[in-house]
Amino acid sequence: MLWFLRGMRTNFSLPTFILMAAFVGFAGFARESGIEMAHAVFMTVMVWALPAQIVLIAGITAGATLPATMIAVALSSVRLMPMVTTLVPELKTGKTRTRTLVFLSHFIAVTAWVMATERVHRVPRQFRTVFFIGFAMTLSLLNVGVVLLVYLFAARIPAMVLGALFFLTPVYFLTSLWATARAHVVKLAMVAGLALGPLFHVLTPELDLLLAGLCGGTIAFVLARSPMFRPKGDGQ
């Protein structure tokens, strides 16, 4: 229980504020797109991944069919699989039930992943799942609150403010991911992904993230093992 509360308290921090700002932007976008409040809330609870929710709304407003929308959303969400795959070994103990991991995996999205990667190693292993659930469930609920508040109270949000709110997310990811990169391979992967992302976006817009991740990750993995990159020292 103590670690659940400590997890909750982790939300008094810059990343949570930034994600909430991004959700102000999302709710503004959903409302302008003619999505009802109850549907926007249901989406936030059930999907809990901002890019997927934006793709979903784009499909809805374009009048796309259910299968077409599902495929577009699924493509935008592939990135969650490697993120969950790397966080699970850090969270579990030998006794953790699969059911628990399945439940907590729903709350893993980019912000929660970056924050958990940064903080969870300081939590004693047996309390990590409790800590994560306390933190990530609260993060999710806070943003459901943000969506409700924007629908109920916010007048039209000026375009300039929305633009600035949307800019917070990439800059936060860029700096916090770099700050928490302990191993050399992570920094190499970041540089590779930053460079390959736009390239694949132009070449294959549908599969850009997946291909940039696989190619960038492979390049970083191989380079980190080559003697050329070794002497620079890890964690610099």
Binding site: F29, V191, G197
Partner: peptide
């Protein structure tokens, strides 16, 4: 290590997409 490199490169690609090819405002 390999999956972590892939996950990191993926998030980095999300970052550059949000900066270079944003949607909305």
């Amino acid at each position: 290590e390999f999956v972590r490199a892939v996950a990191t490169a993926l998030v980095a690609a999300v970052i550059s997409r949000l900066i270079l090819f944003p949607t909305g405002a």
